[in-house]
Design a binder for these strands. Structure first.
Length: 480
RNA sequence: GGCCACGUGGCGGAGUGGUUACGCAGCGGUCUGCAAAACCGUUUACCCCGGUUCAAUUCCGGGCGUGGCCUCCA
């Protein structure tokens, strides 16, 4: 089967032709571990998880290598460590921050139904590879040493700017940056820089006497090289990484290893907004995966619903993350999962779904096929397709509980008021259903409706029906 | 200021040079003491202006709008 993917490098969809079909290789830029991952971070994780699953299906589970790095050296990490653990030595504090954040990240993306990548390398475990790349670049005159920094000389690479499709002249014309005094060319970027006292540091390359640390882009070149080789098939990440991160990564790797390509296909997911606005802490609409899972827009949302809402939009389109679309996603899955109870998955994935995914990961098209499968009663196939896409298909794990503590904004006051939602025991529910049944038998519908409304207000939905003998029977479930 | 992407019915969201995806909501119906849930049926579209074409929502040019990148960023 032909898998067609949109390539940022060529701006068109192309059939994937792996360099080695017995080992298809994909690298995706992972998190910098200093804080909870937000919903925007979740997008590439989910999108490339779907691609990973598709590649495993097409080429075989043992023939796909998926590398997603963990960036554990960064100024933001240092700042967070100093803030949160002022009593610890900086390096110990940094270790605490990165380990805790990594565990949070894993818990969150596991809940989103994402498979773990084949390898999750850490930047700090690849310093020797980074130094080796720096040495190669200097030797080939693509990099130079200045004031204990090592810089990449963009003028030494004819095709610099090819990925982002902008020339050096354009970049210089639009630049609003102060050029550091150690740069020969305004667009040159740092490969290695000296560490300040107390900061993490490693022996420097290129004969630099003082210890230092890597620039931002170098780690990905090093980790991709170590785990996937000099050239590989797919490199992914958010569209905001095209420039400068991926452009620079590509420049480093191509110049260090003398290739015209680093990855054959570069894939970028579109940006995410929240309720129509750019997500930012200052706007107060910054939403983490953890918040969504524990309480957002009134509910603790199950990971499957978050995943479904995310896949409802094609990965290259911008996506507006709203409570409404999340609610819609949850409602759809709720209905399907209810019907899938006890249904065994079909042994093979429906071709229609596969065809959609093979066309540049058309997940919204695939979801339309799922609707058709559901409507057509092809439940075994629906289940197979949902499982393939990473969904759990268990309704009891899909309940969106009202957030234990809901925050209600009251006008004219500064402080939010907290409302505690009281839990209700199953015995309480059974008791009230019995009371209501008695009221109904007596045709006291005012009382029976009152009880039903009361339970509804507490998130319990009653369903009246008849048993085999035609007697009225009421069942209940937690409202979705 | 420079570069780039996008603009589809009330909302979300695919896709296509000619045969009105799909979902949600709405409306009508089945069911129900009444509801809820579920199920059945159903209305509404392709930002504006030019051009190419027998034919454009789909291709080309311009405009307007939204968003992104150029600085840390998925």
């Amino acid at each position: 089967m032909d898998l067609r993917l949109y390539n940022t490098l060529t701006k068109e969809k192309q059939p994937l032709r792996p360099l080695d079909p017995s080992r298809v290789r994909m690298y995706v830029c992972g998190p910098t571990v200093y804080d909870f991952a937000h919903i925007g971070n979740a997008r590439p994780v989910i999108v490339f998880d779907v691609l990973f699953r598709l590649l495993r299906h097409v080429y075989g589970a043992d023939h796909v290598a998926y590398v997603r790095n963990i960036t554990d050296v960064d100024d933001k990490i240092n700042a967070r460590a100093a803030r949160d653990f002022p009593d610890l030595p900086l390096n110990a504090a940094i270790r605490k921050v990165t380990e805790e954040t990594e565990a949070q990240f894993h818990a969150d993306v596991d809940a989103l139904g994402c498979l773990r990548p084949s390898v999750e390398p850490r930047a700090t475990e690849h310093i020797p590879e980074m130094r080796a790349i720096v040495e190669k670049l200097i030797k080939r005159r693509h990099a130079y040493v200045e004031r204990d920094h090592v810089l990449f000389a963009v003028a030494s690479m004819k095709t610099y700017g090819r990925l982002a499709r902008r020339s050096l002249d354009e970049m210089l014309a639009g630049a609003r940056i102060d050029v550091a005094p150690y740069k020969r060319d305004a667009m040159d970027f740092v490969l290695w820089k000296p560490s300040k006292p107390g900061e993490p540091s490693w022996p420097s390359p290129a004969g630099i006497a003082v210890e230092g640390r890597p620039g931002w882009h170098l780690e990905c070149s090093a980790m991709a090289w170590k785990h996937l080789g000099e050239q590989f098939d797919i490199h992914g990440g958010g569209i905001d990484l095209v420039f400068p991160h991926h452009e620079n990564e590509l420049a480093q790797s191509c110049c260090a290893f003398h290739h015209d390509r680093m990855a054959n296909v570069w894939m970028h997911n579109g940006f995410l907004q929240v309720e129509g606005e750019k997500m930012s802490k200052s706007l107060g609409n910054f939403v983490t995966i953890r918040e969504l899972r524990e309480g957002w827009a009134g509910y603790a949302w199950p990971g499957d619903a978050l995943r479904f809402a995310m896949l409802g939009t094609h990965y290259r389109q911008p996506i507006d993350w709203t409570a409404k679309s999340l609610d819609e996603a949850h409602k759809t899955l709720w209905r399907w999962y209810g019907d899938l109870d006890g249904v065994a998955p079909a042994p093979v994935m429906p071709d229609e779904v596969l065809a959609m995914l093979a066309d540049d990961l058309n997940t919204s098209g695939a979801i339309a096929v799922l609707h058709a499968l559901h409507k057509g009663g092809r439940l075994a196939e629906l289940r197979a397709a949902l499982s393939f896409l990473g969904f759990g298909c268990e309704q009891r794990r899909l309940q969106r509980r009202p957030a234990a503590v809901a925050t209600v904004e009251i006008e004219m006051t500064d402080a939010p008021i907290k409302v505690i939602v009281q839990p209700l025991s199953e015995a309480d529910v059974a008791q009230r259903i019995a009371e209501r049944a008695a009221a109904r038998a007596a045709r006291n519908f005012a009382e029976s409706d009152r009880i039903r409304d009361e339970l509804a207000a507490m998130g319990i939905v009653l369903k009246d029906g008849k048993d085999a003998d035609g007697k009225p029977v009421t069942t209940w479930e937690v409202a979705r």
